[in-house]
Design a protein around this nucleic acid. Structure first.
Length: 575
RNA sequence: GCGGCUGUAGCUCAGUGGAUAGAGCAUCUGUCUUCGGAACAGAGGGUCGGGGGUUCGAAUCCCUCCAGCCGUACCA
């Protein structure tokens, strides 16, 4: 039987069969038929699904589209999932789901639970989403939060689509930034012992470095101190990175993000690590050359603008060299079928050459997807602040979570498509008012929970409810909206665009709020969920139960909580 | 210079070949001692940056121009 997960394919099959039948009956010339004929009409008045196939066939078939539509519609077999098809100018075939089918979906959602809309399109495939991966040279800032929200939701979406999914953080604990970090840390550390030392030029001026130095002094005393004028010990650097990574991990856990793996860049250079193997492979392919004292990957022969250095003239690998090894590890060693790297847009110059290198070490170019998100502009008190870790003036993700809450921050980050520059209005996100859409969605869930509680107090539960009693337009509209989740999951998992989740969540919440208030609007208390009619009440509670499952699922995919009740903490005070 | 992203309602943004271009906020009008009103119903508001082209059909695809952001390192 058809359900939310396969209704589209079911209708396509019905349509295909109708076209074939029309051809066999000589009602339609035997012309090539374009695929994927089922669409979603924008206007609900045109049905739940529609086909523009007649418009596309008109030329080849040499008949008016409307006539073709009539012919095909006439050959569509009767099906319990749909009402008889209708035809609309200039040549659409409109399909409407039957009430009986919609009602049955309430039972289906309850029977299948939170996974009712999950797909199998990624079944048997391993996917990895790598995100945030900020240098552990400072605390995460607001921009990293956007990457975290996007990457985490994307991973959830892929998992819902059937992929075996891992979340990974790439820890850049090697390289020049790390050295600069170490130098700055040692300067701050020495300052704590009264030495008049300046922070290196191009160092990290932020006060958090002084805090970090203090932390390390507290735990290790002067163990890292060297005679004046000498360099600091590498162990200080290592410890500094460790502590920073711990802080980053705490921040992300606060944000509700949990990684399956924290992958150390340094580990690439361990004996048996991916670096030497990947470089050997490129060398064996004749794709490495020595030039100007450095080692270059001859990427221009593979279509890149230019060759790129992988090992500097001083013998240290570049970031590019590391990344080649890292992606060799992902694809060749760990055999991921799909890898999504979520990066800030300022890295976009790196995308093409990394894909090329990935290809050179034997992976499919398209198996690596790089999702770029544009940088976040912060607005506070009408003032626009650009984010920069190096300026020292940053607003951290921790501060954002404290002020706004993790749920609201995530929702705002997800709402914008990754490619769009976004303005994050701190004052707005902080508001606990109806200007803030996150409360709208969560409130809908709390209301659903409230109705179930209210019913239970009167001895009414969803058990035994007869869904065939659900015939009100608002009730059926809510079921239609619940069914759409599967399309949203598919969209997220195939386009890697998580912004569809919050938009869907809002329309699902709207469908419920509208249902919930219909009795007031129509001034008819028999439309309430809990009425004098116990049978009717049980049927509606069943719908409420299913809707709650649905909304909780979307909130879960976005990494947000689904509250059973709302706290109105400060709203009254501010008012 | 070259390359990438972006340009849609007053604001923030969805919509990536279909029917009258949507949402939230803001503005205005109703509902209103609520199965929790952080709600619902409705209204006004658009030359989809400009100009060409492809198509039965374009916000969507192609070309071109304009504006903003980013990149074009032996930084990451």
């Amino acid at each position: 039987m058809a359900d939310a997960r396969n209704i589209r394919q079911h209708l396509e099959a019905l349509l295909d069969a109708a076209v074939r039948a029309a051809v066999v009956a000589h009602d339609l010339p035997d012309v090539p038929v374009p695929g994927s004929a089922i669409e979603r009409p924008k206007d609900a008045a045109n049905g739940d699904f529609a086909s523009s196939l007649p418009l596309r066939l008109a030329r080849a078939a040499m008949k008016p589209p409307i006539a073709i539509a009539e012919v095909i519609a006439g050959h569509i077999a009767a099906d319990p999932a749909i009402d008889p098809p209708t035809v609309a100018p200039p040549g659409f075939i409109n399909l409407r789901l039957s009430n009986a089918f919609l009602q049955s979906q309430v039972e289906q959602v309850i029977a299948l639970g939170p996974g009712y809309a999950d797909l199998t399109l990624g079944k048997g495939k391993k996917a990895q989403v790598e995100f945030v991966s900020a240098n552990p040279t400072g605390p995460l800032h607001v921009g990293n939060g956007r990457g975290a929200a996007i990457g985490d939701a994307l991973a959830s979406g892929l998992a819902a689509a059937g992929y075996e999914t891992e979340r990974e953080y790439y820890v850049n604990d090697a390289g020049t930034q790390t050295d600069t970090f170490g130098d700055t840390l040692y300067a701050r550390y020495q300052q704590l012992f009264g030495r008049d030392v300046e922070i290196p030029k191009d160092g990290y001026p932020g006060s958090y470095m002084a805090v970090l130095a203090r932390e390390i002094k507290d735990e290790a005393g002067d163990a890292f101190l060297r005679p004046a004028g000498e360099f600091g010990p590498p162990e200080l650097n290592t410890r500094g990175i460790e502590v920073m990574v711990e802080h980053i991990r705490d921040t992300l856990e606060h944000f509700g993000v949990r990684y399956d793996r924290w992958f150390s860049e340094r580990s690439l250079y361990d004996p048996g690590g991916a670096y030497s193997e990947a470089m050997d492979l490129l060398a064996a392919n004749g794709q490495l050359v020595e030039r100007e004292g450095a080692r270059w990957f001859t990427s221009s022969e593979l279509g890149e603008d230019k060759d790129n250095v992988v090992v500097r003239s001083d013998g240290r690998p570049t970031y590019y060299g590391s990344d080649i090894a890292y992606h060799f590890d992902k694809f060749v060693r760990r055999e991921f079928d799909l890898v999504i790297d979520v990066w800030g847009a300022d890295h976009h110059g790196h995308v093409s050459r990394l894909k090329t290198a990935t290809q050179a070490v034997g992976a499919d170019r398209e198996a690596l997807q790089v999702l770029l998100y544009q940088l976040v502009t912060l607005k506070r008190g009408g003032e626009i602040v650009r984010l920069s870790k190096r300026s020292g003036e940053i607003i951290t993700l921790d501060e954002l979570i404290d002020e706004v809450g993790a749920d609201a921050a995530r929702f705002f980050f997800l709402l914008r498509s990754p490619g769009a520059q976004m303005e994050f209005d701190l004052d707005l996100a902080k508001k606990q008012s109806n200007e803030n859409p996150v409360f709208y969605v969560q409130y809908a869930h709390a209301r659903l929970a409230g109705i179930l509680r209210h019913g239970a107090e009167q001895g009414l539960t969803p058990e035994g409810g007869d869904v065939s009693l659900l015939t009100q337009p608002h009730e059926l509209a809510l079921i239609r909206e619940m069914m759409r989740l599967t399309e949203v999951i598919q969209l997220v998992a195939t386009t890697y665009e998580p912004q569809h989740l919050p938009h869907y969540a809002m329309s699902l919440a709207t469908a419920f709020h509208a249902l919930n208030d219909a009795f007031k609007q129509q001034n008819d208390s028999s439309l309430k969920t809990i009425t004098d009619d116990a049978e009717m009440s049980r049927a509606r509670l069943r719908l409420v139960q299913a809707a709650k499952i649905s909304l909780a699922r979307v909130l879960g995919l976005m990494g947000m909580s689904a509250p059973e009740r709302m706290e109105r903490a400060e709203a009254a005070i501010e008012a």
